[in-house]
């Protein structure tokens, strides 16, 4: 219920706010156009009506899944965003995979040997990962791997193929995959640092717990103690964070997409802000807020599925 209210309030705030700035007519219409042409264009875009009426029209459309038409592309704004969504999703999932596949083992290692050289190096690296501004790292990746070494392409998605005959993706061909590597790495760095720290802290904590001592006292092998007893217990916070951070990866993709000219929704948003394409801005925000609400819901459900304590408490209550 709260999420519906949030969605509604957001739509109102953003709508009013976005419509208060600038005049898209100035950008969209040829300056040489005469007064009659201007007025016709304004009426065609529905900009002659008072603001509250525009909002009501928008709201009525929104309830039926119509978030208005883009001023610039003259196609439905929602459709425009949905065609860009697979690119962003592919990038975000690839980044999250990199972060998880590298972050958990590195964090585990740093947690098991906190005072070793490797452990310290990993931690220092993670501080750097937090401090480095994403966009600058992106530029440096382009500089090293595209310009100096010439190994990987610096922009675009490369050729896409249809996954399940529906979704266009890059990762099915070598060419597409090579386009994906740099942006995904760039987007992954921040989350990688976060996962390393989280896993390390969890590992250090659980190593001191009684159940680990007990498992060792039973004479279990080191691999089993770590793989089963430690890892399973630290998975709960990690899965929660992975879920919640997925939303923020999608948001941060805006920056990475701009650096690597990746044709996703984030790039669309930046372009729309620059062109004052109001319907697309509003539609993007509503889509992303909805996405966040769905992600939070899924994490909540996963959380109770993973943590027996939450499950039991709910069963009792």
């Amino acid at each position: 219920m709260q999420s519906v209210v949030v969605l509604f309030v957001m739509s109102l705030l953003v709508f009013v706010g976005v419509y208060a700035i600038g005049n898209p007519i100035d950008i969209l219409i040829n300056p040489q156009a005469d007064q009659i042409d201007r007025e016709r264009a304004i009426a065609a875009l529905g900009l002659d009506k008072p603001l509250w009426e525009q909002y009501l029209v928008f709201l009525k459309g929104a309830l039926t899944g119509d978030l208005g038409r883009s001023f610039v592309h003259a196609t439905p704004a929602l459709g425009l965003i949905l065609t860009r969504m697979p690119a962003t999703m592919e990038l975000a999932i690839a980044a999250m995979l990199i972060a998880v596949v590298l972050g958990i083992p590195l964090g585990l290692w740093a947690g098991l040997k906190p005072n070793g050289v490797a452990g310290r190096t990993i931690m220092a690296g993670s501080i750097l990962g937090f401090s480095l501004p994403t966009f600058w790292v992106g530029l440096m990746l382009i500089m090293v791997f595209s310009v100096m070494l010439g190994w990987l392409p610096s922009n675009g998605r490369g050729p896409t193929m249809l996954l399940f005959g529906l979704v266009p993706v890059s990762f099915l061909s070598w060419e597409g995959l090579s386009h994906l590597v740099l942006p995904a790495t760039n987007l992954a760095l921040f989350k990688l640092a976060l996962l390393i720290r989280l896993t390390r802290a969890g590992t250090r904590e659980s190593l001191l717990q009684d159940y680990v001592k007990f498992a060792r006292a039973k004479g279990l092998s080191n691999a089993r103690v770590i793989g089963v007893h430690v890892l399973r217990n630290i998975m709960i916070p990690i899965v929660t964070v992975i879920g919640l951070e997925f939303g923020s990866v999608i948001a941060f993709a805006i920056v990475t997409e701009s650096v690597f000219a990746w044709p996703g929704m984030g790039k669309l948003l930046i372009d729309s802000i620059n062109l004052l394409d109001r319907p697309v801005i509003v539609a993007y925000l509503l889509v992303i807020v909805t996405l966040f609400i769905v992600i939070n819901l899924v994490v909540d459900v996963l959380y109770s599925a993973l943590d027996p304590r939450v499950r039991l408490a709910e069963a009792k209550g």
Partner: peptide, 20 residues
């Protein structure tokens, strides 16, 4: 709570889109 559940960059972009 609501504000902190959204990433800062997203809120910043919304505000800049709104404020200019």
């Amino acid at each position: 709570d609501i504000q902190l559940s959204f990433p800062a960059i997203l809120i910043a972009l919304i505000l800049i889109a709104v404020l200019g």
